[in-house]
Design a protein around this nucleic acid. Structure first.
Lengths: 210, 210, 210, 210
DNA sequence: AATGAATGAGGATTCATTCAT
DNA sequence: TATGAATGAATCCTCATTCAT
């Protein structure tokens, strides 16, 4: 269905901009230029629409993380690096969807969607946490706090998704321009996270002697 | 006015639990056990109520950060440490208010409130960023990315405020118990952020030679 | 058309269970397992479907009453008896249709259908009323109220069609079981109406002794 | 509340004319000349309005029947006569309410209301049935079918409530005028039911001999 | 300061129906 | 004959707000 996909695109945009409750069915219908009743025809309800959006997208995020984790030809540090790169890239290119997802992670209003989102999210978290634990076991990594390392990685990225105005003010430089679409900003963020995590994980130069 | 304060307390709780749009005036009136019309009488409107909550609370956060920044008897690293400690403590003890604030940081629906929140937030951000820049200038710190260091500090903390269910799943240990009220968790978080930031700011090779 | 007939059967069942307005086209389509648009294709509209159901069924009820009325080999009392028997039998075996009919008799919403139903019904009423008048004229019957005798006959039967729950409560005995499908209940009802009407129509003093 | 009572009056009229589902909240609001939202304010929902109407009225019907049943100074036949008189009078003067009630007796859509109505109705039925059983035991009455005697009494009355058009056609005489407001018709109905029931209950052959 | 009643705008959803194929 | 998509009108209800007291 072309129309169905179109409605999902439009509503994802609106949900990401205005939030779920603030976006009305009329908003969606008018922006997508379809009949109001058609949305209910295709998705059953407003919440059904949201669930549909999630089902379609949520899984493929998970898949790539899993692939990285199971790549036997790279070590734990490289895995973490690749995951960071992947996460940042996904968030920056799929902003709308990830804003919607972040909203549902935050808000527990739509219980079912909330629980589902948390479930997917937790699985990814555990993959990353396990990699770190493995690195510690192998003594490649310091004895860090694996869960909170995850919190730092994902928290840093999420923080940058919070608000356009915030990005303009803090990360937009002198011109206060939203850097989200600037590819060099994406690189800057990736590097920062990689380095701060590496500096924390890897023992800082133990045997520097003559 | 005792009643006024009572309404603000109750509504802050509700806003933090259910979000601003989902919380109705009737919810507030019934939970606060006051007449519906009285809320409008005191605060003018629902949004007026929100603004009132912010005005009352937002400033004193700012004040303490500013105080730390201007404490001439401590160096930049110590300033960063104290700020991290302060932030974590505030967030954990004032959960409700900070959830509401985080929501308004995220959502741009109520433009004025959003802008005000961002403004306050940005000021705090700049204070911290300036400290880091100062540290770099003094060559106490590495040449890190000051803005993104702030993103990491605040992002890590905010991530832990996102959702009770998330905390239970990822940070709740085997019993999956929300650790937010556990004082040792607060300590754990503080230490993690302090260390990860320190490892990143301070040149790894300090005295490691003969 | 097999499909057409099938749709009518299914919709009659639904109309009798839930009423006309409460039954939706979707209900019918899904229960009959046909496409929604097909119903409109065949019957023009929801009301068209109802009319079709009536046209198909209503006439043959009338016919039999008329036949009994014109049977010259039986007297008026016997005619009344046969009509009672016929009515009760029809109502009990064709419950669904008669519930729909009773509904339309009661509700004047769909004016045309209501008027048609009343028209058919009134004709039958008049046939019965005429028989009673004839009996009075012939002095076989007492000087009763012919119209209200009809009201009693038909009212008693209709009362038993009102509600399953009512039948269970009042006529279901100790086990509160709906007696409508029990053939002995049908006999009991027939006998009761026959007797009460006979006791009223026929002069009580039959065996004048010395 | 005067307004509340007014809304109930108006909606009872509309429900009796058009039925519950066909009557819209807008119909009620406009006919009662009140704001649409006010109805929900007072009654919570459309069904709440219906329930309110029932609660207010249903009980006092029951009370009078019970009083008659427990009057020790009159015999069973007199009790039946008084009940018939009472029922007919109530139905004719409170047409609207009784039409609404009859509708809910018939329709099982609003389950709770249906069950409540049946419950009240069944209680009244049992009072009457018990009187008849008592009469049979005392050998004042014939061995009739007590439940179906009740069906006849109430069925005859209900039949006359079914439809204005029906009354005009069958009971309206030559001018086809709805006799419901004609007091002589009420008397005629009362007498008919009294007689037909008496003829059935009381042994026909009393002392008719020399 | 406080209240119960009332309001108007707007919410999601459901409905019978129609269209294009 | 049959269908999936689409439509417009109408449904009940909820909301923040205001009014009179």
């Amino acid at each position: 269905m072309d129309t169905k996909e179109h409605i999902m695109q439009v509503s994802m945009l609106l949900f990401s901009e205005k939030g779920f409750e603030t976006t009305t069915m009329r908003d969606i219908a008018s922006k997508a230029d379809v009949n109001l009743a058609l949305i209910n025809y295709h998705f059953g309800s407003k919440e059904g629409l949201l669930k549909n959006i999630f089902q379609q997208r949520a899984l493929n995020i998970q898949f790539h993380i899993w692939e990285i984790a199971n790549n036997k030809s790279i070590d734990e540090l490289e895995k973490i690096h690749q995951i960071i790169e992947h996460y940042v890239a996904k968030m920056f290119t799929n902003q709308e969807f990830h804003k919607v997802m972040l909203r549902e992670l935050f808000s527990s209003e739509r219980e079912e969607v909330h629980a589902d989102t948390i479930a997917i999210f937790s699985e990814n978290a555990n993959i990353i946490i396990e990699i770190i634990k493995q690195g510690i076991k192998k003594k490649i990594f310091n004895k860090v706090d694996p869960e909170l390392c995850f919190a730092t990685i994902i928290g840093t990225i999420h923080h940058l998704m919070l608000s356009k105005l915030l990005r303009e003010n803090i990360y937009g430089g002198k011109e206060k321009k939203d850097p989200i679409l600037d590819p060099s900003f994406q690189k800057r963020v990736t590097n920062h996270i990689k380095q701060i995590i590496e500096n924390h994980l890897i023992p800082p130069l133990k045997i520097k002697s003559i």
